[in-house]
Amino acid sequence: MNDILDLLPPEATHRDAERVFTEAGWTPCGAGDWAIALRSPDRTPDRTMAVRISPFDPTGPYTAELYREAAHTRQVPQLFVHRRLVGGGDLQVMEWLEAVAEQEAIEFHRAIENREESVAELVDIIRGIHARALQELPWCGPLDQNPSNVMRGSDGRLVACDLFYADGPALYSAAGAQPEVVAERIPESERRFMTEIPLAASGPWDAAEREAMRVGLAEVDARR
């Protein structure tokens, strides 16, 4: 792992990260709206890992904080590496997770929502970090209760992942219609690649619309 990370320069972007991990033998294993995922070449039950690489993810540091703060509960993924990437990207290396049945995931989300005893300590950590994210992050969304955000670790336990997210529809609508508002609230260095998220679940995203958004933001940045 360290030898791969040593190949990432301090100014690495999401493109650099994907290239370096791919060249090291990690293979594509999924994509969502905000990030892609690659699977490690070592696929023994206790060594398989995944890397999540996002071009733009304002909530990445909060998610990483949750994984660290709640690690002792064993109800979040084991996080090995977290690194911010140039332009607002985010990289997380974590244990390999498997999908669970939708009903099982819904029940776990319900336990979190109701702060049931089995997840009470996890819930307190989630709520504390999320409350701060709501104060600090423009366009921070509510907790994500998508069933796909509950998965199973290699030891069989259920974990909650990717609970924090930016309100994409509102943020990108603002970027298209009022780029000056987005430029004022999010520094260029933290949104440089915001039009390069995969949108694998919600896409496709029209190329002309992406380009218009990039141009609009660039014009505002040039004036600022």
Rank of each mutant, 00 (worst) to 15 (best):
A183K: 00
A99I: 03
Y172Q: 04
A218N: 11
P204E: 13
A50M: 14
E113F: 15
E196R: 12
I53P: 01
E136Q: 15
E188W: 15
L137N: 08
A12I: 05
A37D: 05
L122F: 11
P10T: 02
Q78P: 12
Q103R: 10
H14E: 04
W34A: 15
R127A: 14
R43P: 01
S189T: 13
P204N: 13
E104W: 05
H130Y: 00
A177H: 13
L79V: 02
S173R: 13
V93N: 06
R192I: 03
I129C: 08
E196G: 05
R47T: 12
T48Q: 12
P28M: 01
D33H: 02
W96P: 11
A12Q: 00
G141V: 04
D155L: 14
L122N: 05
M1I: 00
V76I: 11
Q135H: 11
P142I: 09
L97G: 00
E184G: 11
F193C: 06
A120W: 04
P9F: 13
E209L: 14
L158I: 06
R152S: 03
I4S: 02
L85Y: 04
Q92C: 07
E95S: 09
D3A: 07
A24C: 00
P169G: 03
A37Y: 04
T27S: 08
V119W: 14
E219D: 13
D33P: 06
I197D: 01
R39C: 12
E209F: 10
S173W: 02
G168D: 09
E219M: 14
P61T: 11
T63I: 11
R52D: 05
T13F: 03
G153R: 12
D90K: 05
A207D: 15
H82N: 07
S173G: 13
D3P: 04
E211A: 14
C161N: 01
A170D: 15
T22R: 13
A175D: 07
C161R: 05
A64C: 10
V76W: 06
